[in-house]
Design a protein around this nucleic acid. Structure first.
Lengths: 202, 202
DNA sequence: TGTACATCAGTGAACGCGCGTTCACTGATGTAC
DNA sequence: TGTACATCAGTGAACGCGCGTTCACTGATGTAC
């Protein structure tokens, strides 16, 4: 994979340099998805994928750490958006919780590198986005409690356990190959029900 | 950190080269624990820590991948030993399960690099050791069922969920800083009880 | 006990590579006249 | 409408670094005589 593979992009007009930032982040996600590891997201690899040279990135990111941080923030934001989209229009809070949980796990398994970036990197600069993802999950657990469908007495705590368990499911399923894993949806439902203490509708 | 920090080790006697292998793995774990990431476990870093030069490692490992593989196998074996030691002499199967779970999580939080090596690396060569750790956990869940202390109808499946959840707890607790996590033991007990479907003693 | 020799664990120099980062620059574009 | 100029997104060469890996070698040790 050399720069020959990707045709050199057309230079942006003066004042439109900001476009490059978006294109760069898209390119960085492509590298992350294909390589499956954050270490592969180097300035050189991202630049080559975006059809520019590495030094051009310094116009938009302080350094490689800043790029990774920005990538992690985006990953959380997109995960939150995907969860919202999956649960849109769903009125039953338990269904909504299940759909959110499924989205988190399905995306994690599809793009392990992205999941690792979110859940194994210690990076205060992009933690706020992570906390928002978590807060939304807690809110949904809370709505289950309000609807009498969860026996949880501490939705924040149980939401944390749930996120941890789903997170671990992605990791373990990705890593422990050769294990006869049950169907994904079933796993997610079981774990969600047990951790969030879901009770049957009256 | 240069080779000056660690005094040059005494050369092993002919026929005792095998000792180096053990010393090397100990040194590799030290690097892994201190740096917290597998990428930091380079041949050069391990050699410097062990007080030898990098090429000397080729007498014992085919390449750096082989060293990482061996390290992962050892990590799983040591985790299994630690779980066994923690549960030794405990007759109540639920207590034993809790102690095993606590051991997994406590060690993971103490040495995140080690945990990441075990649970985020895809490496068939060292998966057997991982499966043994998992099998033992399943056996303990099974003994809970046999004692009428777990409502699990599929200990293998629930054991997988439990390992995943504990694994995720380590990751999430390590990564999501700033969250008011409950006491570790309490978290582990709650998650274990819910996932393994523990019921109160009659 | 003394000496010559074989063994082999570990050395040291060297290689090519990809990395992050710097710096002086270029040249297409929009604007002012 | 035509020309000179300023802007600034992106270039290309260069740097020092740590990496995995190779290779010919060295020299302390155990052994045979």
């Amino acid at each position: 994979m050399t720069s020959q593979d990707t045709p050199r992009r057309r230079r942006n007009k003066p004042g439109e340099g900001g476009r490059l930032r978006e294109e760069t982040l898209v390119a960085a996600f492509e590298v992350l998805h294909e390589e499956g590891a954050v270490e592969a997201v180097t300035l050189r690899a991202v630049a080559a994928r975006a059809g520019i040279t590495a030094p051009a990135l310094y116009g938009h990111f302080r350094d490689v750490t800043h790029l990774h941080s920005e990538l992690r923030t985006r990953a959380f934001e997109q995960l939150l958006d995907a969860c919202d989209a999956a649960a849109e229009g769903i009125t039953d809070p338990v269904d909504a919780l299940h759909l959110r949980a499924e989205t988190i796990v399905a995306r994690g398994i599809e793009f392990p590198g992205r999941h690792l970036l979110m859940f194994t990197r210690i990076d205060d600069a992009s933690n706020d986005a992570g906390h928002r993802t978590f807060d939304r999950l807690v809110a949904v657990v809370q709505s289950c409690v309000a609807a009498g469908r969860s026996a949880s007495t501490d939705p924040a705590e149980d939401g944390a356990y749930l996120l941890a368990a789903l997170n671990g499911l992605v990791m373990t399923r990705t890593t422990m190959t050769g294990f006869p894993w049950p169907a994904l949806r079933q796993s997610v439902h079981e774990i969600t029900r047990r951790i969030a203490r879901i009770v049957d509708a009256p």
